[in-house]
Computed example of a mutant assay.
Amino acid sequence: MMLFKNKIKFLFLPLMAIISCNSNVEKIDTSAVKAKMGEYKIKKVSEADIMASLNKMGTKSVNTLQETGCQIDSLEPEIARYLKPISFSDGSQFEKEEGVLQALQYSVENGQTVEPTPQKLNDTLYAYYFLLDCDSLKAFKVEVSKGDLIRSMD
């Protein structure tokens, strides 16, 4: 019985090699994919680059809102989707944000102006906090993911 199994093994391997060599495999043209992949460049992005992108987006939001009398619908859609009015009664899920919100709330309550504050909330989320005088002093934030900031870079 063992001898029979060994003969089958020796016959099976060459038979498989013959079958696999005779199969008609259709070759797929990948030149278009290769050309497209050649267009992509790996880009090294530093934390400073990400913060600069956040500042650019935040500054653009502040300037547009100031020019239009705080009309949120005047912002470009790709920026408007990140803009959020701040409600001080809501808590924050980020420890770092709590301090910023407390400082902003103090400023609003005392009628003070505050310079815009860009912050890294965690490894993947950034926010740009600012106050605007729209009928009354209001607080806003532009909250953006790290990936969206990188994609928005020139």
Rank of each mutant, 00 (worst) to 15 (best):
S87Q: 11
S89A: 15
Y82F: 15
S31P: 06
L65W: 00
N63I: 14
K43W: 04
E39P: 01
N122H: 07
S23Q: 13
Q105F: 05
L132D: 07
M51T: 13
A103N: 14
F10W: 14
S92D: 02
I86N: 01
K44C: 00
L83H: 01
T124L: 09
K56W: 08
Y40F: 15
K7W: 10
G58E: 03
K146P: 05
I150H: 07
I50L: 06
I150E: 11
K146V: 10
G99Y: 10
L137S: 10
M57H: 01
S89Y: 12
L83W: 03
E143Y: 01
N55A: 11
M1Y: 11
D123E: 15
K138I: 04
V45A: 01
L121D: 05
F130W: 08
K36C: 03
M37C: 08
V45D: 00
Q71C: 02
Y126N: 06
L101I: 07
A127Q: 06
Y129S: 09
E143L: 14
I150S: 09
E109N: 14
M153S: 06
N63T: 14
L13R: 04
Q71Y: 03
V62H: 01
I72T: 10
S136D: 13
D73T: 12
K96D: 09
L149A: 08
E76K: 09
S53H: 08
T30A: 08
E67F: 07
S145C: 03
F140P: 00
I86W: 03
Y128E: 01
L75W: 01
P14T: 07
S20A: 13
L15D: 03
S46H: 02
K120A: 13
D49V: 04
T113V: 10
K5N: 07
S61D: 09
G38H: 06
D154N: 14
Y126I: 04
K7N: 04
K44Q: 10
S61V: 15
A127N: 03
S46T: 15
S145V: 06
Q66Y: 05
P77V: 08
V33C: 04
I79C: 01
M16F: 14
M51C: 04
M51R: 10
S89T: 15
A52D: 15
S31H: 12
T117V: 12
I28P: 03
I8V: 15
P77L: 07
A139D: 04
A17M: 15
